[in-house]
Design a protein around this nucleic acid. Structure first.
Length: 556
RNA sequence: GCGAGCGUAGUGUAGUGGUUAUCACCGGGCGUUGCCAACGCCUGAACCCGGGUUCGAGUCCCGGCGCUCGCACCA
């Protein structure tokens, strides 16, 4: 943290110049909600686009856009309803609210995992003392959900739902469409930039903890048994700062980290490299990036391994990207909840033949004899060795013992040929907090210097994400310079992807200063010479150097 | 959610119950100026919201909202 007021001055500038502003401020504001203003809005969309372009380079990923309004069942299946709720109870004597599971620690191995009814029953049975006033008078527990509740549809026909806490689930539920799109060939990925919502109990620290935030996620589906071909050589020359859960902080290449099994999957390592490239590309200082591995107990409910990219800024080290190996958790969960198949097929090198030579049931006798148990009898009989002699007693799956006679069984001999198998793909997920990244881009780009003995601030933003590409100034708005400058400005704005800003107010120095403050890489000034030969001066933000060019070279 | 502190123009601020709320930067207009926050004149803009105490509240009290910090929480 900087104690010299830099953060305050930076925040003031961001508000003044229209990067970031508290949302709905004239109504008193709303915690954890921010506007990207007239300058920040453009920057946000450029970072989003840059992110998409960056991952599209993989060549086997597509972009999706799924709804933010999500039915209850989807997030119940994904585990969010369970994991994202805290059950609260209030002491009727002193009014102190407590988490029910916290009160019951020591009375159950893992109270956090209990369902609402179970937790209520345990609370009633134990009736713990209030940590605040030592009384024992608790209200009925209520679910305090970190997801925003909503109702899809009106009145009694309305269906419970939530605003999504991550973009991922829509991509999992679309798996079959993706699988078809990619001609049923893995690996492939789906990605999405969009809003996510978490009803944080206490949003803090500006852009770091938001209730509505911009996220960008890629779900990359892989065959867990396929040979791994991830190439880590592009990062051989760039050792990364790694904090693993095993060892002391280390600086080593991704290749080395994989070899030492600090990083447990090479695709995770490759995505760490790609993530690093992205962060540097949009202007994060590489010296202030590190990767930290999650401890086993802090891992999300779905993850097998997880590395956060952390960026150092005014709030210390902040996790801005999570790269998680989610295993088959998500697809399997949605399969279980829906009964639908979310699988890919893996062909065997050689067809596999299985020879079955044993017993099966004679349906016409087992059915009438065992009635409802017939299914379990079938399973048990088919597990019997071929040399079994009947009658014999067998134990069913429910521990019941039944006697099977010769009349209940018949020989089962068949050869089954399988050319492949269906499996649940595994998922590697890089998940980016775009707001946090934008915050750190700004934080790292913001420079306070002195110019002619006065304070001077400028943003050294990467030109690929700068909110304004060119600022166009007439030296004076007279002798036709104003018209020429305005024309140039309009022509520049006509170029796809280019934003120009026209500014004719104040002295030329003041206009340069304004452009520098929002990180405009180049300023074009129309002056008297422009009237003669059409050239303009181009002034570089970081060096202040000026060269004369003909604007056609920019408009080509 | 608990506790403490805070909330005045776009930004940063002054203001300890009493005229028309201070100052600077800032924004806009005009003039001047031949390229780095120049100058002159003019001008714009605020007491977070609601209630109370008081003859009178930016100032004191209560509640709400927001901000900061600590605790708690946190993929």
């Amino acid at each position: 943290m900087t104690g010299d007021g830099r953060l305050e001055r930076l925040n003031g500038m961001l508000r003044r110049r229209g990067f970031l502003l508290p949302a709905f401020e004239i109504h008193g504001g709303a915690k954890g909600l921010y506007d990207f203003g007239p300058v920040g809005g453009r920057m946000r969309s450029r970072v989003n686009q840059r992110w998409l372009d960056h991952w599209l380079q993989l060549g086997n990923v597509v972009e999706l856009s799924c709804p933010t309004v999500t039915p209850y069942g989807v997030l119940e299946a994904s585990g969010h309803v369970g994991e994202f709720s805290d059950f609260m109870t209030e002491c009727t004597t002193c009014g102190e609210a407590s988490r029910a599971d916290t009160l019951l620690e020591g009375h159950h191995a893992n109270p956090d995992a209990l369902k609402r009814d179970e937790l209520q029953a345990l609370l009633t049975a134990v009736n713990p003392t209030c940590p605040s006033c030592n009384d024992r008078a608790w209200t009925t527990i209520t679910a305090q959900n970190l997801m925003f509740n909503t109702t899809i549809g009106a009145g009694d026909s309305g269906r419970a739902g939530f605003l999504r806490p991550e973009t991922a689930q829509g991509m999992f539920t679309s798996f079959n469409a993706l699988h078809r799109h990619f001609r049923e060939r893995l690996p492939f990925g789906a990605m999405q930039v969009g809003k996510g919502y978490r009803n944080e109990i206490a949003p803090r620290q500006g852009m770091i903890r938001l209730r509505e935030f911009n996220m960008a996620e890629l779900e990359y589906f892989i065959d867990p048994e396929a040979e791994l071909t991830d190439d880590l050589t592009p990062w051989d020359g760039r050792p990364m700062h790694l904090l693993s859960d095993m060892e002391e902080p280390a600086v080593m290449t991704l290749f080395e980290a994989c070899k030492k099994e600090l990083i447990r999957h090479p695709t995770v390592a490759r995505f760490m490299g790609i993530t690093h490239d992205f962060l540097v590309d949009v202007g994060i200082d590489p010296a202030r990036i590190r990767f930290r591995q999650h401890e086993q107990d802090e891992m999300a409910h779905y993850a097998m391994d997880c590395w956060d990219a952390e960026i150092q800024g005014s709030y210390g080290w902040v996790e801005c990207v999570g790269i998680a190996h989610r295993g088959c958790y998500d697809l399997e969960s949605h399969e279980k909840a829906t009964g639908k198949t979310l699988r890919a097929r893996r062909e065997f090198d050689e067809p596999r033949t299985t020879v079955i030579d044993g017993w099966t049931i004679n349906g016409s006798t087992v059915g009438p004899t065992f009635k409802g148990l017939a299914g379990q009898v079938k399973t048990a009989v088919e597990a019997l060795p071929k040399d079994t002699s009947f009658p014999c007693k067998i134990t069913l799956g429910n521990d019941e013992v039944v006697e099977i006679g010769q009349e209940h069984v018949k020989p089962n001999q068949q050869t089954i040929k399988e050319t492949g198998e269906w499996y649940i793909p595994h998922v590697i997920e890089p998940a980016f907090g775009i707001d946090r990244i934008i915050w750190h881009v700004i934080d790292h780009a913001y420079h306070e210097t002195e110019k002619n003995g006065e304070h001077y601030t400028l943003m050294r933003l990467a030109s690929c994400i700068a909110p304004v590409d060119y600022a166009v100034f007439p030296l004076f708005e007279k002798d036709g310079m104003g018209d020429l400058a305005w024309n140039l400005h309009q022509q520049l704005c006509g170029k796809p992807g280019i934003v120009s800003m026209y500014d004719a107010s104040g002295s030329i120095g003041r206009r340069y200063a304004r452009a520098d403050e929002i990180g405009t890489p180049q300023c074009l000034t129309v002056d008297h010479q422009t009237l003669e030969d059409g050239t303009v001066t181009v002034r570089n933000r970081d060096t202040g150097e000026q060269v004369r060019i003909h604007p056609d070279t920019l408009l080509a």
